[in-house]
Computed example of a mutant assay.
Amino acid sequence: MIKSNLAVLLAERKMRVADLVKETGINKSTLYKLYNDESVRIDFETIDKICLALDIGVGELLIYKKEQ
């Protein structure tokens, strides 16, 4: 299962989803779904913008966890 680490990343930077919306131009609902780990799919362009804005790699944003 692939999990989003966006909530942790934003907390570490003392940022809100609204701050990331302003910086990236990504739709608020898209980021909230990713923040709350409710996304079913995510566009490569969205991943790219988030990684660029937070200065991270894809492996820091998306984490693979084996289902139990």
Rank of each mutant, 00 (worst) to 15 (best):
M1L: 06
M1N: 03
I2F: 13
I2W: 10
S4M: 04
N5E: 02
N5Q: 10
L6M: 03
V8P: 00
V8N: 11
A11G: 05
E12I: 01
E12P: 00
K14L: 07
D19R: 08
D19S: 08
L20C: 08
L20A: 09
L20N: 09
K22V: 01
T24E: 03
T24I: 08
I26R: 02
I26V: 15
I26M: 07
N27T: 08
N27I: 09
K28Y: 10
S29F: 07
T30K: 11
L31G: 10
L31C: 08
Y32K: 06
Y32G: 00
K33F: 07
K33D: 14
L34W: 04
L34P: 00
Y35P: 05
E38Q: 15
E38W: 02
S39V: 12
S39T: 09
V40L: 10
R41S: 15
D43R: 12
T46Y: 05
T46R: 04
T46N: 09
D48E: 14
K49V: 08
K49S: 12
I50C: 03
I50T: 06
L52A: 12
L52Q: 12
L52E: 13
A53I: 10
A53D: 02
A53W: 04
L54C: 06
D55L: 05
D55S: 14
G57Y: 11
G57W: 03
G59E: 11
G59S: 08
E60K: 14
E60F: 01
L61Q: 06
K65M: 11
K66S: 14
E67W: 01
E67D: 13
